[in-house]
Design a binder for these strands. Structure first.
Lengths: 355, 355
DNA sequence: TATTAGCACTCTATCGAGGTGAGTGCTAAA
DNA sequence: TTTAGCACTCACCTCGATAGAGTGCTAATA
């Protein structure tokens, strides 16, 4: 599979680059003229035919479904993959860009959702595509703190804090009014009892509590189960408008379906869980053309990475864009921001999980 | 201004309806045939000329900026406004729809963000446009509870609860490590001291605390000031894809600018604050064509309403769509959902603010 | 043997011409 | 007051012709 001549590699690389820039199928003549190659269009044509036979290039299909033999060539999914794995020289993000980004993070307020918003914004801006960032969360929810706040009559605001800094608030209606003192007492006892417990621990914890406490434990346990089921924290998106100006997204029906996918957070979570959970922290994963799994994303690619403390508290971030996105720019950015977020998470909410 | 003949009103109404349905300029002949009017196209033409003179109709301008005298008429902003104020019979939402919607709310989990998400989803679905919902928040932030959770070394997770149920979490780094017991003690004392206080109250509260407590009070006060400055809570959006399939949004540059506006939450908050704050709770406000204020929304209309307890805790919700949206369907929906959210807010976090 | 020039072919995009259809305004008749 | 008729304007579609870009294949060339 790697048995391409150097010239073939050069040609494939230039085709990917040119198509990334122009979104137009690229032909032999244009390639020679535009990049001043020292062999003739005919040679290039022969090589392109060979690359087509290898499945790395193809002739584009028009809107009417018929292939267009006189338009030029376009990389196939395999072509992009070959480019990413063999042809793209892995460069670091330029130092100046690194500094700009990290500066923004250290200037931001030390709140998780600020970081998430900022990460999404940076990714979207750098890649000129849609960015996705999920809030960090513990792989297995551990209870940390409960707060019960009386509001009015039988209504109580319950605030749960899980490990990893995830916060869950809920309004509950009790059978009968309860004073704030009583609530505070219950909260204090519960904080003693269920500190650091996982879902399983919690179920084993009946008998040692009165009715009110028991009810609340049940609620907490329900919330934790839900938190366990969820595969990722809240999802932050940015850069939707970037992708709308791309030619393959204007007026196409695929575009709308892809965007609908982004709007439905549950589907999106499912999507992310299916892919990202397989990979470890640190590596950047590149999914080209939906990789067979998502019909809606047939025209898209994703560059994804996990961040955080493996096995403990992790999140995911990435970029979704047209298949012809600039991988050479996107991949280092995703890697760098993932590293940055890993550091931030590590410094703050990570270590106390080892206790 | 109200001096339209009945026939003129009928014609204006039909033009608005037809244009809402088809997005095509509507001509005299089509109008007569399609709605089987008992007068001739020529009569309709005369009336349309009169309505044009009154500024309620106009001839559409093509993409090249030249007016097209042979395409038909479209309503002007004034035309829509006349339609909304004088011609639209204010109907209630059908009972079955009301039941469907309220059922969804009472089945949902009693969490504010569930309600917001659901409200946005319902509005987007009913109106087939973009929906905006802001979380309820107190007009003047009152401090309610603080929670300090030691994570690791000098890192502390601070969770603030404001009146109205708003929750704010922040990671702070202390000068030196502090035990969880010490933190709990500080939190307990602070909860005593600053319970129910507003921003002004807080600043008067120095001297009676040690250094650590004083630092934290400063932080809280900063957070509250920021909360005061913000005009609305978190913004929930839905239905972006609805509007993308509308003809005036495909491939137009205006569309992208409008969507960019929606992506930038700060601008959006500013926009909402400028309009909604003027109106009271209960009334539905209709802004047609950006109403001169926002160039990006020249082609759009908004149907907005406030919900909550006036003067105490309120939020806003509304629909943003093309100017030719179905006001007759959108306005009752917005009114109904606003009422529903008002009830929910009232039942839970509203009353204890009167203390 | 590898490369290139040349040629025939295909398909798209563009342009102008011509016809059709929808709409308008105006005038005159009912 | 209403309507029929007419002249006029555009937008849109179709058709044919043309130019341009690209391909594959064959034969000549270094």
């Amino acid at each position: 599979m790697t048995d391409l001549t150097d010239r073939q590699k050069t040609i494939l690389m230039l085709i990917v680059r040119d198509y990334t820039d122009t979104a137009q199928p690229v032909g032999s003549k244009r390639l020679v003229e535009h990049y001043s190659l020292d062999y003739s269009p005919a040679t290039v044509r022969n090589e392109m035919a060979a690359l087509t036979d290898l499945g790395l290039l193809r002739q584009p299909i028009g809107v009417d479904g018929v292939i267009n033999p006189s338009a030029g060539r376009v990389p196939t999914e395999e072509g992009y993959r070959y480019f990413v794995t063999h042809l793209m020289h892995q460069v670091e993000l330029p130092e100046t860009v690194q500094h700009t980004i990290s500066h923004q993070f250290f200037q931001s307020r030390p709140e998780v959702n600020q970081w998430m918003t900022l990460a999404a914004s940076v990714l979207a801006h750098q890649s000129q595509a849609v960015s996705l960032v999920t809030a960090p969360r513990a792989e297995k929810a551990r209870f940390k703190h409960v707060e019960l706040i009386s509001t009015q009559g039988r209504q109580v605001l319950m605030v749960l804090v899980f490990s990893g800094g995830e916060v869950n608030q809920q309004i509950l209606t009790l059978a009968e009014p309860v004073t704030q003192e009583r609530l505070s007492g219950v909260a204090a006892r519960l904080n003693q009892m269920v500190q650091g417990k996982t879902t399983e621990d919690l179920t084993a914890l009946s008998g040692r509590a009165d009715a009110l406490e028991q009810d609340i434990i049940t609620l907490i346990s329900g919330d934790m189960r839900r938190a366990d089921d969820r595969v990722s924290g809240e999802i932050y998106l940015d850069g939707l408008t970037n992708v709308l100006s791309e030619p393959e997204f204007t007026d196409s029906d695929d575009a709308r379906r892809a965007l609908r996918l982004l709007e439905e957070r549950t589907t999106l979570q499912d999507l992310l869980s299916r892919t990202v959970l397989k990979s470890g922290v640190g590596g950047v994963q590149v999914l080209i053309g939906g990789e067979g799994a998502w019909e809606e994303l047939r025209q898209c690619s994703m560059v994804l990475a996990r961040y955080g403390v493996p096995g403990m508290v992790t999140g995911m971030l990435g970029v979704l864009g047209p298949m012809r996105m600039s991988y050479a720019r996107t991949i280092p950015t995703v890697r760098y921001v993932a590293g940055l977020l890993s550091d931030l998470v590590n410094d703050t909410v990570g270590d106390n999980l080892n206790e």
